[in-house]
Design a protein around this nucleic acid. Structure first.
Lengths: 255, 255
DNA sequence: GCGAAATTGTTCGTTTATGTTCGTTTTTAT
DNA sequence: ATAAAAACGAACATAAACGAACAATTTCGC
């Protein structure tokens, strides 16, 4: 088969795991070590990977290290959640994706979807979806937040008010025991609330680490969300509350 | 069965699976390998798929590659122009950068500037400036144009109308003998005109290749521009015209 | 039904990708 | 520091995929 397929998958794996090993890839693809070495050499030559003894890593030059690290954190869990979420997203709808690594993971899983209108205030989502064919991408205006590529502020809110979405996929900084969605950034809260207000349906994507943290600003309650996608069972009495609220909970363990 | 049906289905499968193999398709449709190869060649020629050994893939970043190539074209000349332009840009001002590889080059040279407010409808400019510290970046909304990362349309114009810039740095697709700025995309023309209208001063950055091309839509005349940065002397009587118009011309030969 | 045009199948020489072997370099353990 | 082990990359062999040319088949207009 073609090296082109492998190259693409290798990059994908590298992005998720942060690194790849020659042996691991050889086993994964069922080819010899030499073939993988050739692949990695090629990718390194193109500057897409950085070759190291025994494998390869993501090129260190990429812009925001703090962000990159956060991105690879729980990569597998996020990908699994995102896949489950993407499966519930039909074709031919309008969709909002907001800030957060989890929503970016969903964007990655949407690349096979068709005829979507995706609006986002996340530069990374826009970059990801720029590679797909069959979807119109609209970027909201806003002040660029370097930390995560988010677009926030008045401009973002005004743009969002001009749309009505079939579905919004949102993330949050933390999810507390009472079922409240919290965020670190007060500006982002305004954006998120506007999104909720402008969409017919809302899915929340939040990995388990969000339940161990707290944040100062409240976005909304799970009761206002149609479905929650996560990677570990909810703590305490949240499952019961969600049932009462008619909020579907989809748990997708990693792996 | 006609090849048209297969083509449609092949694209369908490619979008779902992300890739297709010659062998797999041959089996799926019950035809010979050669027939599939012909199909894939056709689809690749139309730019709908990317042919690889053993099959084909979605042309993931094909448009990106075209862009990447364009970007490295005249890279030295562009960097020199951009440097000259950046030197004329003071600190502590508000600035607009629009679409084009030349303006991106300027963005790269602006990374040492301080306390700028940069508004842009160019995703690449935003990405470049995201790395700098001392400047506020605002992204206009708009429909994402995959070819060059531009944000265009009504949203872009509306955002721009909310600002007044000290200086706008713009590019264009072509520059004709009469001193008219031309563009390939009618949508972008509207954006550019709005920028001119909202800025106190305007610099045009255009390398010599722009003078050998033509484009259908007219943005403005050099007479409305305060300074032109380019990498080769202007042809014919343009220098005289610019002098009459009080348009400064800065020629920066590459190297 | 007949013939032209389009489509698909077949064959074959050429190109490309992968596996194999082996001497060299890097890493690891002592 | 030194030796053993692992990883590396170059060179070659082999297998797979490729595309061009031509033959066979189907489709369609008449």
């Amino acid at each position: 088969m073609s090296h082109a397929f492998r190259h693409r998958d290798i990059l994908e794996i590298a992005r998720q795991e942060g690194k790849v090993t020659v042996e691991g890839l050889a086993q994964h693809f069922g080819v010899t070590l030499q073939t993988i070495r050739r692949d990695l050499s090629d990718l390194a030559e193109e500057g897409r990977l950085e070759r190291v003894h025994g494998g390869a890593m993501l090129p260190s030059s990429t812009s925001n290290i703090g962000y990159e690290q956060r991105q690879t954190l729980n990569a597998k869990a996020k990908a699994a959640m995102a896949k489950a979420c993407a499966q519930r997203i039909p074709n031919n709808i309008s969709l909002f994706l907001n800030i957060g690594t989890s929503t970016e993971a969903v964007a990655r899983e949407l690349r096979a979807h068709k005829n979507l209108l995706v609006v986002t205030n996340n530069m990374n989502v826009a970059n990801i979806l720029a590679e797909t064919q069959d979807c119109e991408v609209v970027v909201t205006g806003g002040n660029l937040r370097r930390a995560d590529g988010g677009l926030v502020g008045k401009l973002a809110i005004e743009t969002i008010l001009q749309f009505k979405f079939d579905l919004a996929i949102i993330g949050c900084s933390a999810l507390d025991r009472d079922g409240d969605l919290l965020d670190f950034d007060i500006q982002e809260v305004g954006v998120s609330q506007t999104i909720l207000q402008q969409s017919r349906k809302t899915y929340l994507v939040a990995d388990a680490s969000k339940m161990k943290r707290s944040a100062p600003a409240r976005i909304a309650s799970l009761s206002e969300i149609d479905a929650l996608f996560t990677d570990a069972p909810l703590p305490a009495d949240l499952p019961q509350r969600c049932a009462d609220w008619d909020t579907e909970v989809v748990v997708t363990p990693a792996g």
